[in-house]
Write a protein that binds this DNA or RNA. Sequence first.
DNA 1: TCATGTGAAAACGTTCACAGCA
DNA 2: TGCTGTGAACGTTTTCACATGA
Lengths: 262, 262
Amino acid sequence: MRRCMRLVRRRGRSVPSGAVSAESPSSAKRIPEATVVRLPVYQRILAGLVRNSVTTVSSEQLATLARVNAAKVRKDLSLLGSFGTRGSGYDPAFLIAQIDRALGVDQNWSVAVVGIGNLGRALINSQGFASKGFEVRALFDVDPAVVGEELRGVTVRHMDEIPTLTAAQRPDIGVITTPGWAAQKVADTLCEVGVTSLLNFAPRVLVVPANVHLRYVDLSIELQVLGFYRARNDEADTGTASEEARVPMIRSVGLSASSDLD
Amino acid sequence: MRRCMRLVRRRGRSVPSGAVSAESPSSAKRIPEATVVRLPVYQRILAGLVRNSVTTVSSEQLATLARVNAAKVRKDLSLLGSFGTRGSGYDPAFLIAQIDRALGVDQNWSVAVVGIGNLGRALINSQGFASKGFEVRALFDVDPAVVGEELRGVTVRHMDEIPTLTAAQRPDIGVITTPGWAAQKVADTLCEVGVTSLLNFAPRVLVVPANVHLRYVDLSIELQVLGFYRARNDEADTGTASEEARVPMIRSVGLSASSDLD
DNA sequence: TCATGTGAAAACGTTCACAGCA
DNA sequence: TGCTGTGAACGTTTTCACATGA
């Protein structure tokens, strides 16, 4: 069972200690996925600060707002570069620009949504897509009642047309919002035309080529996870603590403990 | 043969005294969150096997279907107990029952959805809720055009009615599908009536009491993460490997490496 | 003085490798 | 023989603690 071992890992990760590459400032260090997931959160918070004309923010403040540990914020941000000022903090507007660059937001990705049911429609209309950097450029379904419909200026086409997409028309990101039973076929089709980033909302484990990035969003898993903790912890302390337990917003008080979950 | 039972006491948070800090009385081992998230996936796969009248499954097979490492499957399952048979494997139906129990599925949680927009409607109609163990029992919104509407047999009420819920009417899980700006207020209200499990779809970091379990589902974060990897990796290896890289569908072939990221 | 940036340590999660059992 | 269950190794992520610099 070692046939299909993936040899090509991105940049050799066993970097000798102290190997600080003195080259391009942009993608100097490897950014762990855990950090990547937090960057949009920081970004969102920073945007709020900018709207409120805040011109300086410390890692401690940012951490409080993001409900994480301050050291984590510093580590995360330091991966992008040294953008803070010792003694005072970070400039929100500048930080946003740096995070944007790291996330590739400037590239304006095109998105195709496959499966125009309730969920698909919800996503198309959601904030998430409206946000900068993402544009819904193609919609697909198989239902004759839906094909031809126009949503947000984009006409729904039949799924059979996906294979006819040219390289120029090919979306950067494919979003799968079909029923579970249809998801694998959709993924296959999208991968075949060269889509390499997929976001799957269907309750199904998908098989895709190794070069394709696949992320899952799964409502029923989230519910079941909540159910798990509900069944475990809550039975122990039901009823108590609805008063004092409220997490303090007070600055500089360590909120280290409650960072992860809760 | 376990040499020390890790009585995990770490992360002394500043919980006021009197809180029930003792370890969980119900089950033996602590189940890490990473495992909890995978359990519903296994469960779903096992259900498919049962439908196909499969009576035995090995960790290797299950791992292949779930696209994870076989050792991980065994570790995960062993946390629930020793349910396998050496030399042959696991009984899918039995395993489902065990996972169900661990997830508290037998308890039939009641769910309230707050924010009956596109997304809320999509969720209400989705498979996730239809699945066993979850029942939408209350719907809330502020829009007069929506309040009074009936969805799946449940009438939408005004959010102002949330505080009037009795303990018996209180949902086990609250789902927040409002716009971002309204989410914190909704969370506060739900927490005040004693809801201790929240699933937040609004693009906002929420502050909740320490005893409340809060999970996030955030479309724009997922898109941005995909954008990140798209911008980083893909520019490097476009064009190559579009053939050899295809993950084999062959059963029992190791897929060890490619599970997590990528 | 104050907050960043970062080695070092701790915690956590995954994978290996194999003892032990059906 | 074949597969589970699990110590131990390994890799990743978080947190600590403090040197460094504005």
